[in-house]
């Protein structure tokens, strides 16, 4: 019996170890390539610690295009996050309070972007383009489409936040104390939904910073598009930017983890899985 249990434990360890190697190695390889200026065939014990530097990043930062792309991506991220909050929070609150029966339907609508992936969506945008040039010629016209791509994650995180609070009691208490809907939203709902709103915003930013498909087809120069283009002339610089973007994304997810961590078991219902650990299409 003991030997079988031991074998099983060994098997588990082995699986975890193989997993760790598979997930760590590609990242290490990319980081090495980005930050160490040594050809692969020169690598050896003597050169392993040579020529590490951040010059690849600094030279990428030296490009004017980089700053343009960064500015555009930041504008898109902020715009998408704001649009998401303005459309989704009232909708989700409304559905929870007034038409709980419609919850499943709304939820179904919010996962439709899984069915119509970015490459198909952008095909549709290309069709519409001649009829809406006044709108689609602007770089910022990506905002609503990015909000759509982020919809499955953002709605779910706001929905989870609403499930975790006693919405009806809170609003009724606020209303009976004389607050209007505006005050209720600003002083009661938003504070109690803070962590859901933060995680929805971070998810949006992560989606916008990673989105490449639509930007590439529509020739918009966002940060990922710059990264792809810059790699053609300076591979190490492009890879270095990818390392930075991965770190940024990881930080955003860590932030979501902190924001949605259940606090001291005060409310057992907040123990639902945090929205960050849900599936997304790539």
């Amino acid at each position: 019996m003991t030997s079988m249990g031991g074998q099983r434990r060994l098997g588990r360890r082995l699986i975890l170890l193989i997993g760790a190697i598979y997930f760590a190695f590609p990242f290490v390889a990319m980081a090495r390539f980005a930050f160490q200026n040594v050809q692969v065939f020169d690598l050896g014990r003597s050169t392993l610690f040579e020529n590490w530097s951040l010059t690849s990043v600094t030279s990428a930062f030296g490009e004017d295009y980089f700053w343009d792309a960064l500015r555009l991506s930041i504008q898109l991220a902020l715009g998408t996050a704001l649009l998401t909050l303005f459309v989704l929070v009232p909708t989700a609150v409304w559905v929870h309070l007034r038409i709980p029966r419609a919850r499943a339907v709304v939820e179904f609508l919010t996962v439709l972007p899984y069915v119509i992936p970015a490459i198909a969506l952008v095909a549709g945008i290309v069709v519409i383009k001649p009829h809406a040039r006044w709108f689609l010629n602007s770089d910022l016209s990506l905002i609503p489409f990015y909000a759509v791509l982020a919809l499955p994650f953002t709605y779910r995180s706001i929905d989870a936040g609403l499930r975790a609070i006693d919405l009806r009691t809170l609003t009724e208490a606020s209303r009976s104390l004389g607050a209007g809907w505006n005050v209720t939203l600003r002083r009661v709902l938003i504070p109690s939904l803070k962590s859901a709103l933060i995680s929805s915003t971070f998810l949006t930013v992560a989606v916008v910073l990673g989105e490449y498909t639509i930007a590439d087809v529509l020739l918009k120069r966002t940060l990922p598009a710059f990264m792809a283009e810059y790699r053609q002339s300076d591979p190490r610089g492009g890879y270095a930017l990818a390392v930075l973007s991965l770190l940024a994304t990881t930080l955003l997810f860590a932030g979501i983890g902190v924001a949605t961590r259940p606090r001291g078991g005060r409310n057992p219902r907040t123990d639902e899985p945090s929205p960050s650990t849900e599936e997304t299409p790539s």
């Binding site: 992560a206 990673g210 990881t250």
Partner: peptide
């Protein structure tokens, strides 16, 4: 949670 969302260029 992080890696499942890791598509794209990186």
């Amino acid at each position: 949670g992080v890696a499942a969302n890791m598509g794209g260029l990186p």
